[in-house]
Design a protein around this nucleic acid. Sequence first.
DNA 1: CCTCTGTCTAGACTGAGTCGCAATAATTAT
DNA 2: ATAATTATTGCGACTCAGTCTAGACAGAGG
Lengths: 146, 146
Amino acid sequence: MTQTDPIIAVLDLGGYRLTAPRRAIAALIAGYGGHFTAAELELAARERRLGLSRATLYRALDLLIELGVIERLDLPGGDHAYVPCARAHHHHVVCSRCGRTAEVTDSGVAEAVAEIAHQTGYEISTHRLELFGLCRHCQVKTALDA
Amino acid sequence: MTQTDPIIAVLDLGGYRLTAPRRAIAALIAGYGGHFTAAELELAARERRLGLSRATLYRALDLLIELGVIERLDLPGGDHAYVPCARAHHHHVVCSRCGRTAEVTDSGVAEAVAEIAHQTGYEISTHRLELFGLCRHCQVKTALDA
DNA sequence: CCTCTGTCTAGACTGAGTCGCAATAATTAT
DNA sequence: ATAATTATTGCGACTCAGTCTAGACAGAGG
């Protein structure tokens, strides 16, 4: 782990202090392949005796969202999860079975949005597209279960 | 108001009892042009001395969501609102200034979704698109403010 | 009119997320 | 190195949305 964590790098560039709690949180996040919830992070931190307070955790998440290195998803069930992600505009596909996520670029969505703006007369400034389904891996598993 | 409230009609068709609290909630919802939050409903109910408990309110909302007559939106800020809506698949455009909403059909989004499925290999079962911007009315107001 | 059972009320409860403030420690200047 | 500066943390109390339970109530059908 001599490698620089990208999250740490962004914090540094942003002029934020590289504190122990932030490094710890960055490491935890890097450990998740896909999405994670605030509760999961909190639990993981407690298990490893990192001794960071809930407030710090939430503050760090807010900061990372603001910096665009993680994004908040609203799952259909109503609770939220976070995904580490690139900073450019994109969307997420979430596997509803295993939670694995993939990023996709705007392919065709921008046109659709323009069309909608035209239809409604709204001046659209942001949009959020979230997709749910089965990842390739779970498609196979599901087929076997049947 | 001899006219039948569509929400009441759907409840009836679904075989649910047409109770006083449900009628009251349906009426409140019909009163909102656009979106509303659970808190707003609760407040409105309290102001009119309808005397319905929070539990009832939330249960009614859950039921209406299940029946598809209202839908839950996740606003960028993180809190949720509800919008009364048609039962077919569609999306909402929310005015970020006044909260007014408009429904739009899938125009072009379906293609984009298919393209994304192809790109990622996911078998996509649902998607959610939420758009935010200024409605025509607020575009004018904002121009005047400047 | 009576019964059955779905629905309601009240209020306690849970759990996520926030707030304020004193204590701490990452930087920067000396 | 050391000290000064000030962003960040931890704590713990707090808020607020939403849930749950148990007993009371009231629609719908017979």
